[in-house]
Computed example of a mutant assay.
Amino acid sequence: MEGKDTVFAADIWAREGWASAELTLGGAGAHRFADRIAVTWLRPDAFAAGTARRVLAAVAERGFRVLAARPVHLGPAGARALWAYMCRWATVERLWLLDAVVALGPGLLVLWADDTDSPLPASARLTAGKGNGAPGRRDGQSLRDLAGALNRVLTMVHTADEPADVIRELAVFCPSWQERVLLIEEAATRLAEGTAGSWEAACRQVETELPAQAAPDRAGTAGPVVRGPGVLYQGELAERWAALRAAADTWPLLAPSPGPVSWPEQARRNPWR
């Protein structure tokens, strides 16, 4: 995207992610890696909703081959880092909700290769099928539709939008230098050999920590009234999930005016339109 290179040249996560890739694969190898890798993070809300495996199967059906998978638990600082640029329209309430999402438990990070002959970078093709955050702007066939994404907060599926984001998000999801290099090496080896990894063991690990929760009965009850962020962290997992769903349905999510613009494409992006 126009202007993103200038912004990411000064971004600490992008710089660290690039240093890891370049030192592991060399400059040209790091560029090829970024171009040929797609990244998904099946978020904690997808596991709470019990739909993560459905999305993983759909990604494979669309011509992507799994290279490596890791459980990843983002805290509030990690959530701010991941969505630092995309939250320019977010209300404070929306930030509280994102914190509550990552507080549910881990998500599943998966690196994929694109085995089709698409001219797009792997990350861009996968993101094109992810679907909009707003349910009314999706086509019914997107990954977020398959996940049952409910609204602009409980979107269930995250992807790195393009190669620059692949590099940056490696540093966000894997803040440990050693773990990041091991992940890059594993994915790059399978990419070069044309072999596949598996997400099964990592997925089971996430499911053990964050089992699927029953959906609230919307027909018979009004659901919990959530008046502040504290209740999102109180009680058992089922209670926190129910409170999070209720708050995401009722709290304001879009600010009337945006925060700072980082690159021209963002200046043209208006979720109110």
Results as ranks from 00 to 15, higher is better:
residue 64 F to T: 08
residue 64 F to W: 06
residue 64 F to L: 07
residue 65 R to A: 15
residue 66 V to N: 07
residue 67 L to P: 01
residue 67 L to D: 03
residue 67 L to Q: 02
residue 69 A to E: 02
residue 69 A to L: 04
residue 70 R to Q: 12
residue 71 P to A: 05
residue 72 V to M: 05
residue 73 H to R: 12
residue 73 H to G: 10
residue 74 L to K: 02
residue 75 G to L: 07
residue 75 G to N: 07
residue 75 G to Q: 11
residue 76 P to R: 13
residue 76 P to C: 15
residue 77 A to I: 12
residue 78 G to C: 04
residue 79 A to T: 14
residue 79 A to G: 11
residue 79 A to H: 07
residue 79 A to E: 04
residue 81 A to F: 03
residue 83 W to D: 12
residue 83 W to R: 11
residue 83 W to I: 13
residue 83 W to Y: 15
residue 85 Y to T: 15
residue 85 Y to V: 03
residue 89 W to L: 13
residue 90 A to D: 09
residue 91 T to G: 04
residue 91 T to F: 09
residue 92 V to N: 11
residue 92 V to E: 14
residue 92 V to C: 06
residue 93 E to Y: 04
residue 93 E to T: 12
residue 94 R to V: 01
residue 95 L to Y: 15
residue 97 L to T: 03
residue 97 L to N: 02
residue 99 D to F: 10
residue 99 D to P: 04
residue 100 A to C: 05
residue 102 V to M: 05
residue 102 V to G: 00
residue 103 A to P: 02
residue 105 G to V: 00
residue 105 G to M: 01
residue 105 G to L: 00
residue 105 G to W: 00
residue 107 G to R: 00
residue 108 L to Y: 03
residue 110 V to H: 04
residue 110 V to M: 03
residue 112 W to Y: 14
residue 113 A to F: 01
residue 113 A to M: 09
residue 114 D to M: 01
residue 115 D to I: 09
residue 115 D to C: 09
residue 115 D to Q: 10
residue 115 D to A: 09
residue 115 D to W: 05
residue 117 D to W: 10
residue 117 D to G: 09
residue 119 P to V: 08
residue 119 P to K: 14
residue 120 L to R: 08
residue 121 P to L: 15
residue 121 P to E: 05
residue 122 A to W: 00
residue 122 A to C: 13
residue 122 A to H: 00
residue 123 S to L: 04
residue 123 S to I: 02
residue 124 A to C: 06
residue 124 A to W: 00
residue 125 R to F: 05
residue 126 L to F: 09
residue 127 T to L: 05
residue 127 T to P: 01
residue 127 T to F: 04
residue 127 T to R: 11
residue 127 T to I: 02
residue 128 A to K: 13
residue 128 A to T: 08
residue 130 K to Y: 07
residue 131 G to N: 06
residue 131 G to F: 00
residue 133 G to D: 14
residue 134 A to D: 13
residue 134 A to S: 14
residue 134 A to N: 13
residue 135 P to D: 15
residue 135 P to A: 10
residue 137 R to A: 14
residue 138 R to H: 09
residue 139 D to E: 09
residue 140 G to P: 12
residue 140 G to Q: 14
residue 141 Q to R: 08
residue 141 Q to F: 07
residue 143 L to H: 10
residue 144 R to H: 14
residue 145 D to E: 13
residue 146 L to H: 13
residue 148 G to P: 10
